[in-house]
Design a protein around this nucleic acid. Structure first.
Lengths: 197, 197, 197, 197
DNA sequence: CATGAATGAGGGTTCATTCAT
DNA sequence: AATGAATGAACCCTCATTCAT
């Protein structure tokens, strides 16, 4: 793995290292959730993770690398969920697959709306990084493939529109204090079907 | 006006003061647009505005006060536009008023998507401030009043949902490089009518 | 003046600023003399100069910029002295001008041998900087011009050789504790005339 | 051998240990040559040497100990070369022995001018260490003994002067990119004979 | 003996804010 | 009022050294 300024410094192989690596990411995630970028600094991350700054820098060459790794992991989770949701789309009714997709999206955005928003914002100021960027594209493309499969004319633009609108919907609900995925799903479905009609 | 740590220090009454005040806000806005919060600092704002830091602090007690004032102004602009859009709603068809509303929303979000996004993010970490918060509520309420007027059941939640979804839609299009308000309006209308059906 | 990472940040115009600027350079010089690069750090320089780090960074964008400025000043002093020494070379006997040159060289190297050596070493790891580099070249060329004036065949190489050898001579004497310029001058003359024969 | 903070921790007796010891010194030397003191750190030395930091610290108690050992070895090499050059001075003409001495000096300084300069500089800030210091004195004394043998009045000072001047000459030529020992030898001879006349 | 994860003091730099002029 | 020099807490990151395995 290249040691650019944005990739993790070492893939943790020993058990101890793996634990430390994860502790750092978890601490960082918690800080981003609770306080946003403002208080996201390496000293605090290390402290919350229960390690020294030096240790943190053994694993991540810069503060941005931590952010990037969190984004990468979250995006990957989302992409995998979407792929799983669409894997049987050939055999399923449109609404059936759509529901799976929306369920995945709601699950990923509603639980930690502040984190999701912070990561979204942070990403804009990170140096473009292949894998992360590719993941972003892949997410839209997975949705677009689904739309195309069901005869949609402009699948890519529509997919991007819907991904954006759904993010806005779920985010605003989440930040208003809503936490019920079932209620959210209903409105997400309404928004999607309404837009796709 | 009280001089809390978040309100402007003085309402500029003399012409010269007004000019300085505006120059500072304009400089701050440009920096937020171009570089985001990362490079938004008082020294730079003063420099770009062509005044000294000392002068900047004559008008704004803290850095956050500048941010707050920008948000306040932008929100006020938006609110006024929405109010104007709905002022004849009693005499107009539903679609007619909706179009005016969407036109206003698109106009306000599409031109400076990066700025809009940055302000949105910044606001979340600003101390809650009455007027600004009130403006936010008023925006949703204006939309809700319109929906209520047309017999909608749950106007407030629906208004919040739509405001959120539209923001997400326009923001994602804007950040993807779209700049045509007309094209955006068509999709915004589709999203709204679809959701409201 | 460009604001690269190696030039001073502002040319001090007000009296207070001039004083601060000089205090920083003087403190830096003293630290380099006494302890070398090892203990040359911005916190210490600021402390010795009696200013805050922040102030130091108002004048110098990086630690290296301080070093560069010291080198630039010392070289300029040396170059001016050499130019003055050679200004009447057309009217003077060879030995007369040579003596002036050597006097200048001894004066500049013998007083602070440790500083001279440290600057010499530091320079090798500084990003090449036009003016400083030009000064270095100019010094050799001034000597070469003098040699050429007196019918020397390979003035540039000889000048470089002599400058190097004289530096080595004076440095080693200085570091051995010698402080008498007169004694040094005699040997410097012997070395020069011997080599030029 | 005592285990002060500057001597190697153990004289490597087993073959494997010898290899490791040498690998560390070689790595350190390469780093000093290529990047100077700036990037000379124990982690990097260990990495380049292909051993772990822990292993490095089995052999050297401190970073300075590595530097000291390199200096000691280089000086010893130089001293041995000078001793060999002067061993037949009783039977040889003055110029003959001098040439051998200069040949040794040129050989030692011209090949790695950057390394030589770095070691020279580093030495000044190392805690005075008997053996190394003694080697330095021995070098000058070897030269002085040669001068004394040929009826020179002030052999020690003259030897020191010449050692310094020759170092300056060769160093400046080396750093200017010259690499030809033969050409260098001619000028070194000229400098020496000129000064000794 | 070797390994390499962990430590934390040290040092470079920024930037919100104050205050003498 | 306006200026801009000065301040110093805060934050990023490095590297010499230790020690459990």
């Amino acid at each position: 793995m290249k040691s650019t300024s944005i990739n993790p410094r070492k893939s943790p192989k020993q058990a101890r290292a793996r634990v430390t690596f994860d502790a750092i990411l978890e601490a960082a995630t918690r800080i981003l959730q609770d306080d946003g970028l403002r208080k996201f600094n390496t000293n605090r991350v290390a402290e919350v993770a229960g390690v020294s700054v030096g240790t943190l820098y053994q694993y991540f060459p810069t503060k941005e690398a931590i952010l990037t790794e969190i984004i990468r992991q979250k995006r990957k989770l989302m992409l995998d969920a979407l792929k799983e949701a669409t894997q049987d789309m050939a055999r399923e009714r449109f609404e059936e697959t759509l529901d799976k997709l929306l369920r995945a999206a709601v699950a990923h955005q509603l639980r930690w709306p502040k984190l999701a928003r912070t990561l979204e914002y942070a990403e804009a100021f990170l140096p473009l990084e292949h894998e992360t960027d590719a993941l972003k594209v892949a997410i839209v493309e997975t949705a677009a493939a689904f739309l195309a499969h069901h005869q949609h004319d402009t699948p890519v633009q529509t997919a991007r529109d819907l991904v954006g609108a759904l993010r806005g919907l779920i985010e605003s609900a989440g930040l208003s204090g809503e936490t019920d995925p079932a209620a959210m799903l209903i409105r997400a479905r309404k928004l999607s079907l309404g837009y796709l009609r």
